[in-house]
Design a protein around this nucleic acid. Structure first.
Lengths: 197, 197
DNA sequence: GAAATGAGGTAGAACGTTCTGTCTTGACAG
DNA sequence: CTGTCAAGACAGAACGTTCTACCTCATTTC
């Protein structure tokens, strides 16, 4: 959270980012223009450009805000100190909950990449960074589930996650979640059943 | 393939659609403007609007062209007359091949939905139609693999497909393909191993 | 065979709107 | 005084769509 010289969070900036986050996620990055964000956040263009030098940087800030929320969610699950398998179940459950929520519109990161396919673009880079964190986190947890190497399982988990996130608003969310959670359970069971006693 | 009154394929229209397909897929729907398509297809705007009444319709035509290619690929696999499990493996293999190809840029349909999230929009509708076909096709094949009901397996297959297609250019394609194909193999094996002898 | 017709295309301009980013002036709070 | 914000205008570019005048070619009609 950016603070000004006096340690306060700028109210206007906060409102801008919240509004942009909502609109970008609901309607798309290119589909929402600066005018719209400014009007709905009730700030001026000067204020917007004071805080975000360009639209691209606002988009990156949006993705970083979503990433931060994701990381906090996972940190909460980790802090519960459950066994790794249960932590993974909690993470998966949280993903499923998001899919079933009323405002679900897919994965902000996958959606962003669809609109910014150039790998060198800062938006695309922000997505890659967040995904690297997620894969690593999941893989580390899976290392504590069974004793096989965790890399394939980690990728498998992420594959299921990506599939569920990308299709959750293109099919019945309940079915997508069910399929996803069963897939995760299959991964966990497979690893636990393969444990060398 | 649209033909004119004399049964000939309009060269300009064909060039337009091919160019639009390439650009839209590589760079995004909103990111590529009419000017760009016209310039690269070497036709005029009047020609473009003669054949496609609006940009939206050009986008829909692009998606339908991709859908047609997908369907032909699956029809080819079906026509080989292999057992259902092998047909599914062939379909999965073909998907993996696409992911590993140089021009891979994700799933045209998932990408399109990211840019057109309004479910009532014709673009979004074209995506839903194609996906319904794919789910049905895969589910029908899975009905011939083992004797359990095929719906969950069908959704699982599609989930893996979606995950692989959406992440294939965000990670190492070879690893994504490997994970995907192993996931598919897991589905098939699970169904065959569950067969009541 | 010549003329007419229809389909499809070109060149290029114009239209109205929207886009992103910049700037000036003034007000307010601490 | 400093920092932040508002109001509003501006610039220039880009966007998607429409239009005019003319051309070529193949087919049809007389």
């Amino acid at each position: 959270m950016v603070r000004n010289a006096r340690g306060q969070v700028s109210e206007a900036r906060s409102r801008l980012l919240t509004t942009a986050t909502r609109l970008f996620y609901a309607e798309g990055l290119h589909a929402v223009g600066i005018d719209r964000i400014v009007a709905e956040a009730k700030v001026t263009r000067a204020t917007l450009y004071r805080h975000f030098p360009s639209k691209d940087e606002l988009v990156v800030a949006y993705l970083q805000a979503v990433a931060q929320a994701d990381r906090e969610g996972v940190d909460t699950a980790l802090a519960a100190g459950l066994p790794a398998a249960d932590t993974l179940r909690a993470i998966a459950s949280s993903i499923a909950e998001g899919i079933r929520s009323a405002r679900f519109r897919g994965c902000a990161f996958l959606n962003a990449v669809a609109e910014y396919p150039d790998a060198a673009h800062p938006v695309h880079q922000a997505v890659l960074a967040h995904r690297a964190w997620f894969l690593r986190t999941v893989t580390d947890l899976l290392a504590d589930v069974g004793d096989a190497p965790p890399e394939l399982a980690g990728r498998h988990f992420v594959l299921l996650r990506d599939g569920a996130m990308s299709s959750g608003c293109l099919a019945d969310p309940a079915e997508v979640c069910d399929t996803f959670l069963q897939g995760v359970e299959g991964i966990l069971r497979f690893r636990l059943d393969s444990v060398s006693a």
